[in-house]
Amino acid sequence: MIGENKGQVTEMLYPGHFACPGCGAALTVRYLTRALGEDLVVVITASCWSIIAGVPPLTALKCPILHCPFPSAGAVGGGVRRGLDVKGAHGTTVVVLAGDGGTFDIGLQALSGAAQRNENFIFVCYDNEAYMNTGMQTSSATPYGARTNTAPYPLFKEGRKKDIIQIMSAHGIPYAATATVAFPDDLEQKFRKAKEIEGFRFIHVLSPCPPGWGVESAETIQISRLAVETCFFPLYEIIDGGSMQLTYRPPVQKKLEQYLSAQRRYSGLHEQQLEKLQQDVDRHWEKLLRLSGRS
């Protein structure tokens, strides 16, 4: 049974937050704050969470939130960590929330800098695969084949999605992992693990956006689950930029088409495009199996 230990945790997310119905990013933060505990500082860069966190005098989290400009997340995270250390608050955990834009695109420089310096905090990319807060524009996390408002019909996103975990683990950081909202136990476990590790930790959380992806708000979990079951978004972790292990292996790899056809943003994909995507997924999955010694 999933969510078995749900009795012992403190909910850090208040009801009344400003996320859209069915928001994957809200769930992501709900889970990760539960796992990280109350002695926490959350740094939020420009993203959906700039809204979700609430308009003062309100706040949606049971801990301090520090908003910061779009490209600055990695650097601000390090500054907060060091500020806490200066003030003797060594036990306080710092977590930085960034969307895919604030991670893959505009935030990549600061992210890379922080990772390279092995700044002692957790960087979370809640990835909804486009600029969703501004209404679904292409980011470099948008997968090949998806339509956005900057790649409208008959266009589609041409380039591949960046392999951000590879980029980040190439920095040799102590911990890098993927997670998604349909597997909250896996997600929380990774955050609990990350909390105990010193240095830069990067967790990439696929967080479905129902309006952006063109799914019903009720389908958030379902689509997140399909992403894993089709191996489009495998769940794994990489320690010290080297040893990689899958944390969940689907009993049967479902056809990617099942995942794509459930989302309106992929509507009208040609056979060849579908094939290309399936090949990409298969190749990536085989690579992961090889790296994890499971092939």
Binding site: E38, D39, V41, S50, I51, A53, G54, V55, P56, L58, T59, A60, L61, K62, C63, P64, I65, L66, H67, C68, V80, G83, L84, A89, T92
Partner: peptide, 12 residues
Amino acid sequence: LVPGRHANLHAL
């Protein structure tokens, strides 16, 4: 910013 204190700093 004080650890443990409710604060939604510089929010929208």
